[in-house]
Design a protein around this nucleic acid. Structure first.
Length: 397
DNA sequence: ATGGATGAG
DNA sequence: CATTCTCATCCAT
């Protein structure tokens, strides 16, 4: 059956994909850690920025990535919790993924606070038993259609599973989230945002055009970032409609046939990409940004701090890295963005055999070598960020 | 394999 | 625009 419309170039609408998007994730973790924060306006602070905030704070006009100063002006009562150490967020993030894996092994993480789950198999298994489920939560578009449940049994079943997932996250972890249910990842993610917070929305197949129409520009399509959008604008393309109507050969000339086709599929709500189960992380990194680092001594102290926290994480992970990478950001008047430089080297495998203190000292020596390939320490320099990354993580052999 | 560009939250 | 602190993929070399 599926083979037919695949051969005809039609899409597969038989999958059922759930997108789980945790409400104001960092703020929720802090409110769980300290319930007295629940009814107060709360912002999570990294350096001079509020990276996210709870809904009480949003009521006062505080938004993501707002400067501390402006946020305090809008909301003098705002409680700020430092969130530069991601340990608690990372731990809760993986607990969420593990909880979702009880419903299906096909769970793909997106950042710390979003997961895609392919529940097609679960839906098929449930529909073999006789009962016919009611659709749980909102539907998009929100209009009453005769026979909605009968004609969309699989979607309704998916919405029941999504509700069970959200219940499990709430009772096991105390976490609230939104869910989107649709026949592909793109649509599940987009429809999840229709009713926030702590609600869920299912997309009827007939509502795809209308959902894509809610996007203000093509920039709002996941996968089309700021750079790609600028290039599209160069071609006179900015809205989703522009992209749908654009001649294929014009797009191909700018982006190549592969990328051009993917973009034009996405803007029509077509996304054949599978839910790819996320394994353990491929890299473990730690970074710090600052106003100024101008001496090797200072850099060594900062890198030592990063290495110490990385070693703790490595112990929890159980694997060992075979590559070390150091990244710096240099202050530069022009090109203030996209200016990170990195150097990497192999880690001799004997290095993790001895005590932690000795290991850190040897790693620091390697970091200094890499650092000096990017920074001439005999001349004045001005760094604003240092990152250390462990890569090629493998079980000990 | 390396390092940069670009994407995600 | 990035800003924070991550993590992933793609591409030219």
């Amino acid at each position: 059956m599926i083979l037919f419309f695949l051969l005809l170039g039609e899409e597969d609408t038989s999958r059922v994909i759930v997108h789980i998007d945790v409400d104001c994730f960092y703020a929720q973790v802090e409110m769980i850690r300290d319930p007295s924060l629940r009814d107060k306006p709360l912002g999570i602070q990294q350096k001079y920025i509020v990276v996210t905030c709870n809904y009480v704070a949003r009521k006062h006009g505080v938004t993501k990535l707002m400067g501390i100063k402006q946020a305090k002006e809008l909301c003098p009562e705002l409680v700020l919790v430092k969130g530069e150490d991601l340990t608690h967020y990372r731990e809760m993030s993986y607990r969420i993924t593990v909880t979702l894996q009880k419903f299906s092994p096909l769970v793909e993480r997106l950042g710390f606070d979003e997961n895609f789950v392919d529940v097609t198999e679960t839906v098929d298994a449930r529909l073999k038993s006789t009962f016919s489920p009611q659709l749980n939560g909102h539907i998009f578009p929100e209009m009453e259609i005769e026979g909605t449940y009968e004609r969309h049994k699989r979607l309704a079943c998916g919405s029941q599973i999504a509700a069970e997932m959200r219940q499990a996250l709430h009772s096991d972890l105390g976490i609230t989230c939104c869910a989107g249910i649709a026949h592909n990842k793109l649509l599940a993610k987009l429809v999840a945002g229709q009713h926030k917070p702590n609600q869920q929305t299912s997309l009827l197949p007939g509502g795809v055009g209308k959902l894509m129409g809610t996007l203000k520009t093509a920039r709002n399509i996941p996968g089309i970032g700021s750079r790609t959008f600028k290039r599209l604008q160069t071609l006179g393309i900015s809205t989703v409609q522009d992209l749908q109507d654009a001649p294929a050969d014009v797009l191909q000339a700018e982006f190549g046939s592969q990328t051009a086709q993917v973009m034009q599929q996405l803007c029509r709500g077509v996304d054949p990409s599978p839910v790819t189960p996320t394994g353990p992380p491929q890299t473990i990194s730690d970074e710090d940004s600052f106003k100024k680092c101008a001496s090797l001594q200072d850099a060594k102290e900062r890198m030592t701090g990063l290495l110490q926290s990385l070693m703790k994480r490595l112990k929890g992970d159980g694997r060992f890295p075979h590559v070390l990478r150091v990244t710096v950001r240099k202050l530069s008047a022009s090109n203030k963005w996209t200016n990170r430089e990195s150097r990497q080297c192999a880690i001799p495998s004997h290095l993790f055999g001895t005590g932690a203190e000795e290991t850190i000292s040897k790693l620091l020596d390697l970091c200094v070598v890499l650092f000096c390939k990017m920074v001439d320490v005999n001349h004045p320099f001005h760094l604003t960020l240092i990152n250390i990354c462990f890569a090629k993580l493998e079980a000990r052999s």
